[in-house]
């Protein structure tokens, strides 16, 4: 299953490294990544592959949210299907 991870936060050093490490620890492969800075706000969107991830989707979502909060990051994960459904015919 593919999913979109979105991260919103005030900019700081090491956000990409922190999130990428969390994902790698759960055997999640990052397929694509995009990040922008608007004023001091950092936005990152990642396309990830969950095929090898041992956690259930719910557990993973909770894990990312909790680990994000520890660093003041809003981290969400959603199945890619919703974006596909909305924007592709």
């Amino acid at each position: 299953m593919k999913a979109i991870v979105s991260v919103f936060a005030r900019d700081a050093r090491g956000i990409i490294a922190y999130i990428a490490t969390l994902l790698a620890e759960q055997d999640i492969n990052v397929l694509d990544i995009s990040q922008t800075l608007m004023q001091e706000y950092f936005t990152m969107i990642m396309l990830v592959d969950l095929t090898a991830c041992p956690m259930s989707f719910d557990a993973l979502a909770a894990f990312l949210k909790e680990k994000g909060q520890e660093r003041g990051l809003a981290v969400n994960i959603q199945r890619q299907d919703i974006f596909d459904a909305m924007h592709r015919i």
Binding site: I4, D32, S34, T36, F83, H87
Partner: peptide
């Protein structure tokens, strides 16, 4: 799948 960040 090409990730379109604008759409996302």
């Amino acid at each position: 799948y090409l990730m379109n960040t604008g759409e996302i």
